[in-house]
């Protein structure tokens, strides 16, 4: 059997190489199209159009790496960041899979299951989008239906309501049972409430806010743990 370190290095080597090829590939597409139709834009035009996006998306990437990689593990992270739709599909999907399996993030089992979950999720999303692309004309009335628009516009409240219950419930976490973990959300929720409603709306700043909240959340949890409000006990094996 491979050691953990060997597996870790192997999955990262594969992730880095395949992600680098992907990086080249995504620039190849506009390059071939521009060459074939002779529509190359000027460098200054491209830089001007790119700069704004670059300045917005790069800090978001920093916050996503710091916040999500410890939860997803390496393999799932490469796939998640490559296939996009991170916080609305891939991260919740992987977290749900770990919760159902009763394993913790940043564990060997967690790393493996989250990678399987994100791979499956990416294939399903791609299949749904292919279907939608193929059926765009016949599905146009469905997509234009106000009920469908309303339902899909509310995907985030629907998603995070279910996730919140599932995660605040705590309990089984691999080889241990955690009690009182839900109390650790009070401090970050209060901070977000104060900032969002009294200082400035965080819409568009979610990534940065998560980044700032991570140490706040961990320190709050540490305080509760020290005070005995959050407890960790070994799981008693069932006969």
């Amino acid at each position: 059997m491979e050691t953990r370190e060997h597996y870790f290095n192997r999955i990262n080597r594969f992730g880095r190489i395949s992600f680098t090829i992907f990086f080249v590939l995504i620039f190849t597409i506009p390059t071939i199209v521009c060459a074939a139709y002779d529509i190359f834009p000027g460098l200054a035009t491209v830089l001007k159009a790119t700069l704004g996006l670059f300045l917005i998306l790069t800090p978001i990437a920093v916050s996503e790496i710091v916040s999500f990689v410890p939860l997803l593990g390496s393999g799932a992270s490469y796939l998640t960041f490559e296939t996009g739709n991170v916080s609305n599909i891939k991260l919740p999907c992987a977290m749900n899979a770990l919760k159902l399996a009763g394993v913790q993030p940043a564990s060997e089992e967690g790393e493996v299951l989250s990678t399987i979950s994100v791979a499956v999720s990416s294939i399903v999303t791609t299949a749904v989008i292919i279907l939608a692309a193929l059926l765009l004309a016949p599905l146009a009335p469905v997509f234009a239906d106000p009920a469908v628009k309303t339902a899909t516009a509310n995907v985030l409240p629907a998603l995070f309501g279910a996730l919140m219950v599932s995660f605040l419930a705590g309990g089984d976490a691999g080889s241990v049972v955690i009690k009182g973990q839900w109390k650790a959300i009070i401090l970050p929720a209060l901070v977000v409430a104060v900032v969002h409603y009294l200082v400035f709306p965080i819409k568009g700043w979610e990534g940065v806010t998560i980044l700032v909240l991570l140490p706040v959340t961990i320190l709050g949890a540490r305080f509760l743990y020290k005070k005995g409000q959050i407890t960790v006990t070994p799981k008693v094996a069932k006969d």
């Binding site: 916040s67 985030l156 976490a173 650790a184 970050p188 909240l213 959340t217």
Partner: peptide, 21 residues
Amino acid sequence: FGVVAIGVLFFAVLAVFVVPF
């Protein structure tokens, strides 16, 4: 505490998305 710390990381994500609803 490491188990708790990793577990609560997702709470920061939940707080950021849930409170604005």
